[in-house]
Design a protein around this nucleic acid. Structure first.
Lengths: 357, 357
DNA sequence: TGGTGTCACTAAACCGGTTTAGACCCGCGC
DNA sequence: GCGCGGGTCTAAACCGGTTTAGTGACACCA
């Protein structure tokens, strides 16, 4: 049974096409790649032969001779838990793939695991020439991956502009403007005591959002009560929220979170502490997670178009690999999605946690 | 600048090693692959030469001659939105990768996108021989991917046992027992009117959980109030919950959800309707999402070890590719994680939505 | 008439491995 | 002393493309 005697005539090679068309192997290659030096009628005959035989190129053979992989890599360095609830990657990957379907490319996903550190993962991809280029996401302060990838001879695109010299083009979104919009929204609602639950300062977008928060607060004449750093996880978002609530009379009336996951965890903490959201405490998130639309209250958040980000990045990376001039790209500003978790600030300074009006 | 004059002596090939060791190319291949027919001292000399020259095999050349990709594929067919908040894939992939780090394999991730349907995606991977095998996740009723993948000549592993004849080994977890545990937990708490918010019946695990729910309810002598089918998304989970609450006096006192995402959305709906969870309504989820631990109330859920699932699947698939006998694997039963969203059933039959005790 | 250049095309090398066919040498048994 | 078998090794074919060097025909020009 398993020996179907699949006489399915092994797939035709370029040699078969050459024989069928009555020309040499090399000429077939020229014709199929649309290169000059082939007469019109011969070219037509060769294409017809290829068509008739149902020829498709062998990626492996081509790969070996032209020294390209036709694959792009994405290395995920973050821990599984943190990434798990992050909708960004899915949407980003969807965008990347939308470009691949027409380009014959493929995405190689590599995750740094215990026993195989991040740098080793990049080295492995490069040593085996598994990919032609990589996406550098979640840029860190003084990110050493940039030098590493350059040393390894890989092409790359960075998501956001790095803070170190980089030979790679970037695709950036001004997430700072999203944070600014959130702060302005809160200020317009009368909030004067606003805090920020930030991502790790070692990550550029975490830091950038925190900086934008402070700048926006000052620009709007309100006091940034506190900026609490986290690792972007739900548990750390919960911890940060507890710290802010524990400030008692000094606690903020609004908290701007650096992502939705922490905002949702913070919502839980606030409710558990007896605070009503948004009457006692307003909160905003970042990412526009699907779930944030269905909680009670639903979450005011900042939405970026990660799918578009992925598509643009893929196009740019492919262009860079093809040695075409590649210019940095700035994506449209993210937009604030106002929902139920933000409301007019409580009249007086809040007192204790259970302070009734 | 970009012309670093990288005289980095092009990486050594097997021919260089042969010359250095003073033997033929073929013998080097034999020695490096540990095959018989090479004398001990010659083998040692060849290995020493390879070591001295820093030789590493060219994956592409090897790929071409042995007709293998050294890559495994995962095709994601679900829509981006649904998958976005599903932690399963991340953990699963992490498990897969943990096996790869030692096996020199790589994971190719392909997403069906508009303009490139699922079947076309598999065909593309097979036509280009991008992968040696694929993981078949999210099995559907009468899943045609099994015949397709077989026809394409790819190896495969299915996650769970398909309901159609399959030549592929499977790795399964008895999620039914997880649902059963949830039902028994609720019954023990005095619940007699329990409903289920199910996944799509077209997906085997959605259907399996629903069947297990009904069976467990009957086995425990309680009435399965309703089984509402959804597409696993938060918005559909919210819709299903609204329907159940709208039953009024007949509404369930507990809802078993087929995943955490819907349970969390359902929690939002219940709270919005003025129901207290768990006093008025108990809910359980499935997946043990990180966030479910930090909401208020935290979610009682069923935890499976997706990382282990990924690792086992990868090992099994690699074994199948190596033509080793591959037997179906059954993973340990998932466990119920009891948190705050489940409690003793309300005394009387609940009346209206705002019915006070 | 012969030299030069262009065009269309062939033959063969090449990418870097694996694998097969066969050569050579050795010891053994008869 | 010869045939045979087994172990070690070489040469070359092979995987399926790309790319280079070179050939022959022909037109053009001096």
């Amino acid at each position: 049974m398993s020996e179907d005697a699949e006489q399915a005539a092994a797939r035709p090679t370029i040699t078969d096409v050459a024989r069928h068309a009555g020309v040499s192997k090399g000429l077939v290659s020229f014709a199929l790649n649309g290169r000059p030096g082939v007469s019109a009628e011969t070219r037509a005959r060769i294409l017809a032969s290829a068509e008739a035989l149902g020829w498709t190129p062998s990626l492996r053979a081509r790969s070996l001779s032209v020294d390209r992989s036709y694959a792009l890599g994405l290395v995920i360095g973050r821990s599984v838990d943190v990434i798990a609830a992050d909708p960004f990657f899915h949407a980003f990957i969807a965008g990347v793939e939308s470009e691949f379907s027409t380009a014959g490319q493929v995405l190689v996903l590599a995750q740094a695991t215990p026993g195989r550190e991040e740098a080793a993962t990049y080295r492995g991809l490069a040593a085996d020439k598994r990919v032609d280029g990589v996406f550098l996401t979640d840029l860190r302060a003084g990110d050493d991956r940039i030098a590493l990838v350059q040393e390894l001879g890989l092409a790359a695109v960075t998501l956001g502009r790095p803070d170190v010299p980089s030979p790679f083009p970037s695709v950036s979104v001004d997430d700072g403007s999203g944070i600014r919009a959130a702060v302005e929204h809160l200020v317009a609602l009368g909030h004067r005591r606003i805090a920020h639950v930030a991502g790790p300062s070692s990550m550029l977008h975490g830091r950038r959002r925190a900086d934008a928060f402070v700048a926006a607060a000052i620009a709007n004449g309100v006091e940034p009560v506190a900026v609490v750093e986290t690792d972007f996880s739900a548990i750390d978002g919960a911890r940060a929220t507890r710290e802010l609530i524990a400030l008692g009379a000094d606690r903020p009336t609004a908290i701007v979170y650096s992502n939705d996951l922490m905002a949702l965890a913070g919502l839980g903490v606030a409710q558990r502490a007896g605070l009503r959201v948004p009457q006692d405490l307003s909160i905003t998130g970042f990412d526009n997670t699907e779930l944030g639309e269905h909680t009670f209250p639903s979450i005011t958040t900042v939405a970026t178009d990660a799918t578009d980000w992925g598509a643009r990045s893929a196009r740019l990376l492919l262009a860079a690999i093809a040695k075409q001039p590649a210019e940095n790209i700035d994506l449209p500003e993210p937009r604030l999605v106002v929902r139920e978790s933000t409301a007019t600030a409580p009249n007086a300074h809040p007192r204790g946690i259970d302070a009734a009006p």
